[in-house]
Structure formats: structure tokens, C-alpha cells
Design a protein around this nucleic acid. Sequence first.
DNA 1: TCCTTACGCTACGACCCGTAGCGTAACTGC
DNA 2: GCAGTTACGCTACGGGTCGTAGCGTAAGGA
Lengths: 248, 248
Amino acid sequence: MICLTRTGAGQRYLPAGMVRRMPSDSPPEPARSGRPRSVAADAAILEATRASLVDLGWSKLTMGDVAMRAGVAKTTLYRRWAGKNELVVDAVAVLFDELELPDLGSLEADVEAVVLQFAALLERPETKTALMAVVAEATRDEALRDRIRNSIVARQKRLVLEGRERAQKRGELPPEPDRAVADRTADLIFDVIAGAVVHRALVSAEPVDCVWARHFTRLLLSGLGAASGRRDGEGRTPGRRQKPGGSV
Amino acid sequence: MICLTRTGAGQRYLPAGMVRRMPSDSPPEPARSGRPRSVAADAAILEATRASLVDLGWSKLTMGDVAMRAGVAKTTLYRRWAGKNELVVDAVAVLFDELELPDLGSLEADVEAVVLQFAALLERPETKTALMAVVAEATRDEALRDRIRNSIVARQKRLVLEGRERAQKRGELPPEPDRAVADRTADLIFDVIAGAVVHRALVSAEPVDCVWARHFTRLLLSGLGAASGRRDGEGRTPGRRQKPGGSV
DNA sequence: TCCTTACGCTACGACCCGTAGCGTAACTGC
DNA sequence: GCAGTTACGCTACGGGTCGTAGCGTAAGGA
């Protein structure tokens, strides 16, 4: 809705610095004339945004405050971002690059580790308050939804694909019969993992600790029909399906 | 944070009308003297809040607008609620009373139905934008977190408990070995269901339709080790565990 | 009738929004 | 060097929301 009120001149700025700011998305940069944008300012603004999120939270964060922290004029922010929502998405998105799939020898251990990584990321004050607020705004803003999808969701989804591929090579998961089923299942797994962790951490407001991560992982993998690859000897016997019941 | 700025006089109003406004939570009402609060105004305000959410969304909803729609002075709102967050939580919470566990003969069918009910609730414009925004605010507000827990989360959680109890009577789920495990598992199931549906609907922004609900339910129940109770003949064979694989 | 509480109304300072306008800085191509 | 182009900092502004104070009045109980 903000975009609708922007002037034509303002719109010109958007394609360059706003809609796509993934490093790989602006490769050639056809050497426009004129004073170039300060990349230092970009970094300072995003850093200031995260700092402001920590101190003030989403609702009290203001563009003026961010500009002041970054040592930049408020107008500069509006020249690069349409508003608070877009700015915060970009400021938070890079944090998701920290997520990576470890190789601990079994799918179960890998998933557990990712769950804990994700939970740790959600615990950080600059993410926990910002993520939900941005998602809330995105429910009424198509462009913002795309931005979240392209910058944050995509970063997480690749972990699911990587993990499944690796597990299939290990023989822990069966290969997918066809492409459509594979995509659908990956989406499902992604929503289950991310959704459960977010819900546990932010809605239920209970800690996502090792114990919870283990129970959740077992529930998930048991549902996926994965052969147990746990090698530390604890838990269920390898090669045998877990006994159904409350020990999940 | 709002509460901190309220005067002593303002605080006096909170216990009566704000902290607890569930019908069953204020039973005796020790007959205070003075003009009683208009219950009609209460209903009008909450209704106006939902209407405003539909029209404006969370971020553009203002106390003044709600007051105008309700035919009430803005000061009356502040006499009853500390701010926008608390008001919206109360306005939206009652919608969760619509959720109910059907008895379709099998756990699988029941879970599917609840998932679809929950998804339909999330699709409503007054909830989809409000819920996440409130959760976001709650990350920095202990009192708001409690309010959400007591009014919204509690409403949903009872469905999990009911469903499990019924499934155990049917023999679809094994009884819990002890109380602690039972509680922990119920919490886990709750976070998985609610989290996955919310994430699918609001973050991934994909439809939660019958197909998705079925796949998700099978994944969940398979993980829980439930015996298949599906009676329409399709899907897996009763009495036999589902073949692990991509058909989830 | 007095007392108490809720209500509507007005007004208010404080803050934030998003933009316009200006002069200046930085970089490109001739 | 020169214009041409773009980004930046700064100031100022109208418009909106916030949350409260203060007042007179309405609606109940002792």
C-alpha cells in the first residue's frame, strides 16, 4: 500500500536497490552514470535496523531512529526501501544464511541439529519479534509476501532439499517416485519443521531445547518412514521400526 | 510497556474488565456500587474491532477508528484495554470457540477435519493478520503472552486432549505410560499441528486444502504410531503399518 | 439524597509518517 | 576540464495517531 502513494520518481529507485538485494541477483550492473549508492550506507542501515529491533522491538522501531543510528538521513532510507516492512525483512533475512545443514552421520542427528540452530536463531531478539510482525503485514501485502518468500523462505527450504538428498544417498529415506510427490513432500516437511519450531518458541513460548528437538525429530522421521540411523546406541534398535506409543 | 505509563487511576480498571474477560472467569462480581459498565458497549467494541481488522488490517487499525465504529468514545476503550494489542487478542479469541472436534469415526478423519477447520479460521481476514501481529508483540510483553496463552492457546489445546482421549478409547492410540510423557506429547502434537497449519497458510502462503490436510495428517499419525482407522477403503490397509516412503 | 463509578466530549502535547525542496557530493562520458 | 546524472544530507511541512487530562453528565447502590 505504501507503493501506491509513491511518486514516479520514487519508484525508479526500487528496482535497483530494493526488490532484489541478494548478491547474486544483480550481477552485471550496467555501469550507470552518476554518483553510486554507498554500499557502506547499506550495511550501516541494515545493521542499525537490527540494533533498533533489539532495543525497541518491532512496534516501536521508527525509520527516524534507524536513520540516526546509521548516521544517515531519513530520506535515504525512503530512497531505498518503501517502508519499515521491507527494510526489516532485508535486515533479518541475512541472519538466515547462518543456518546450515551439518553432516553428523545420520538424518536424525542432522535434523535435530538444524532444529536447534533454527531455534537459536529465533531466540535472538532481532528475529523473534521481527519475523512474526513481518509475516503479519505480509498477509495484506502481496509484494511483501514475495519478498519474504524469496529472501527468507528460500534460504530455509534448501536445507530440507539438501537433507533429503543426503539421506537418500545414505539409504535412510527411500527415493521419491516422481517429481511432483517429491516437491509436495518437501514443502510439507518444511512447513512442519519450521512451523512447529516457530510455534513452540513464539506462541507456546516454551524452550526449544535438546529434549524437545529429539522428540520432535523422532516424530517427524517416524512419520516419514525413515530407517533409524542413530549410532550412539540409545533409543530404538537400529533396523527395527520404533514401537508405536508415547515415547515419541 | 503501556501499563507502565498508566496512572494509578487507570490501573484500577484493569482487573475488572481487562485481565480476565472470559465469561467463566468473572463469576460473582461482588456488586460494586456506581454505574455499571455497559456490556453492550463491550460487545460493540469487540465487534467493531473485528470489522476494523477486516477493512484495515492490523497495522492500520487505530483506536479512534474502533471507537467510532462502536459508537463509543475513544477514552472508553482505554478505560477497558491497555492498548491495541490487548483489545485485538480479546476480539479474536472468541473466534477460536468455533473450533470443535468432530466425531467422524476415526482419528485420521477427525484430525483432518480439525486441520481444515483451523485453516478456515486462519483464512478469515480478521484473524490471519491479527494473530501473527499479536504474537509478534507478545515476544516483548509478558502480560500479553499470558493473555494469548489463556485465551487462544488454551482453546486449541483442549482439542488435542479430547482427540487423543477419544482415539485411545477407540484403540487407535496406545495409552500413555505416565502423566509427564502424556503432557509432553500433547504439547508436541499441538505445536506440530498448529505450527504446520499456520506456517503453511501464512508464511508459505499456500492453500491448506483437503489434499494437504490428508498428507499432513498421515505424516503426523504415522509418526505417532497410530493404527490406521480409515474406513473408506482407500489408502493403506488397516492393521498394517504404512509402507515407508514418499506417499505421505 | 449522597456516593460511587462509567460515559461522552473536547482539547492537548508528543511523536511518527512520508514527501518536497534545496544545495552539495560523487562518478561517467565527452 | 566540462556538462550530465545520480545520490546524499538537511530542513521543513501537513497529516495522522497516541494516550491522557479535565470536565460535566448518566446510571446504579446505601
